[in-house]
Amino acid sequence: MKVTINRWNAVSTWHWGDTRDEVCGICRVAFEGTCPGCKYPGDDCPLMIGECSHAFHMHCLLNWLSTEASRGLCPMCRRRFQTAKAVE
């Protein structure tokens, strides 16, 4: 028996592969979305991943780090926040 495909509708999904999290640890919005201060996903709201593997929207993290209470620490694990090295 031979089958002929007349029409094919493909569907795909994507996710940030460098992190174990699915939502921002600060605003709790999915990374596929944007932080509360942005309108559109994409370049305006990139992902920031720390050496501790916790990930945040850039704007959420910058706002967090600018507060006196943060003391430069990751809001999830309280280690000194350092961005992870880029994988080439």
Rank of each mutant, 00 (worst) to 15 (best):
C77L: 02
G37Y: 12
A69F: 14
M48W: 12
A69Q: 08
K85A: 07
G17C: 08
P36T: 07
A84E: 11
E51K: 11
R79L: 11
G33F: 05
I5G: 08
S53V: 12
A86R: 06
A55E: 08
P75R: 01
H54V: 07
G33I: 07
S53H: 06
V11D: 07
C24T: 12
W14Q: 04
R71M: 14
R71T: 06
E51S: 06
N9L: 02
T13C: 15
N6I: 06
M48L: 13
K85V: 13
W16V: 14
D43L: 05
R7Y: 05
V87G: 03
G42A: 06
C77E: 04
M1S: 11
C45T: 05
F81R: 08
V11P: 03
T67E: 10
N9R: 05
A55H: 11
K39Q: 15
S66Y: 14
R79Q: 15
T34I: 09
G72H: 13
W16P: 13
D21T: 12
F56E: 00
V23S: 13
T67F: 10
D18G: 15
T83Y: 14
C45M: 03
C27W: 04
W14T: 11
G17P: 03
R78H: 04
R79P: 08
C77T: 11
P46S: 03
Q82E: 15
L65T: 06
W14D: 10
E51L: 04
E51H: 09
W64R: 02
Y40F: 14
I5W: 03
V11Y: 12
P46I: 00
L62A: 13
F56D: 00
L61I: 01
G37Q: 10
T4Y: 05
C27I: 01
L65D: 12
G42K: 02
E68R: 13
R80P: 11
I5Q: 13
I26T: 05
I26R: 05
L61H: 00
D18H: 14
M1Y: 08
D44V: 07
T34D: 06
F56I: 00
H54I: 04
T19C: 09
L62V: 12
R80L: 03
V11I: 10
P75F: 10
P36L: 05
G50E: 01
